[in-house]
Computed example of a mutant assay.
Amino acid sequence: MNTSTSWKKSSHSGGGEGNDCVEVADLDTHIAVRDSKNPARAVLTFPSPAFRAFIEDLKEHPHR
């Protein structure tokens, strides 16, 4: 994964160092997701429209 990629972590990622979360990066046509505890390991990518639809559904139905 490109080291110049700007990774973002949720403000709700837990106490301490905030490593109880995933990080996301906007790669224009895709969204990359990685484990904040193991950032050098595998990265998952999703088409941007599909990831955005997933996030919107989570916002509408947070207790699913």
Rank of each mutant, 00 (worst) to 15 (best):
R41K: 12
G16V: 02
D57I: 07
H61M: 09
L44D: 03
D20G: 13
E56L: 14
D20F: 10
T5P: 01
H12L: 12
G16C: 00
E56W: 08
H30P: 00
F46E: 01
S11M: 02
R41N: 13
N2A: 14
T3D: 09
A25H: 03
F46H: 10
L44G: 03
A40N: 09
M1C: 05
E23L: 08
P62D: 14
I55K: 02
G18W: 02
K59L: 07
T5S: 09
D28A: 12
A42C: 06
D28H: 12
S48A: 11
N38K: 15
E56S: 15
G18A: 07
N19S: 10
C21F: 15
T5V: 09
P49G: 07
S36E: 15
S10C: 08
T45E: 09
S4K: 13
V22G: 02
E60L: 14
P39R: 03
I31H: 01
S6P: 05
N19V: 11
E23Y: 08
M1R: 08
N2P: 14
T45W: 02
N19H: 09
N2I: 12
R41Y: 11
V43L: 06
N19G: 10
K8L: 13
S11T: 11
L27W: 02
F51T: 00
C21W: 13
A32D: 01
L27R: 05
P62Q: 11
R64E: 10
S4L: 10
V33F: 01
L27V: 05
F54R: 05
A53I: 04
K37W: 03
P39A: 06
R41Q: 15
V33T: 01
T45L: 00
L44V: 10
A53L: 15
P47K: 04
V22F: 08
V43Q: 05
K37H: 03
A32K: 00
E17Y: 07
S4C: 08
V24Y: 00
P47Q: 02
I31P: 00
K9L: 10
S4A: 12
K59M: 07
F46A: 02
R52A: 14
N2T: 15
V22T: 04
K8A: 07
S11I: 03
T45P: 01
K59N: 08
F46C: 04
A42P: 02
S11P: 00
S36W: 04
S10E: 04
N19T: 13
N2G: 08
R41G: 14
D57F: 15
S13V: 14
S13Y: 11
D26P: 02
R52N: 11
S36V: 08
E56M: 12
G18L: 04
K9E: 07
S6V: 13
A25G: 03
F54Y: 12
H63Q: 08
H30C: 05
P39F: 07
R34V: 05
P39H: 01
G15I: 06
D35E: 05
T3S: 11
F46Y: 10
L44R: 07
R34Y: 03
R41E: 15
H12F: 13
G16F: 05
S4Q: 13
L27Q: 06
S13P: 14
S13C: 15
V22W: 04
E56H: 15
S4F: 14
R34F: 03
S48Y: 04
T5K: 07
S6F: 08
M1H: 09
V33P: 00
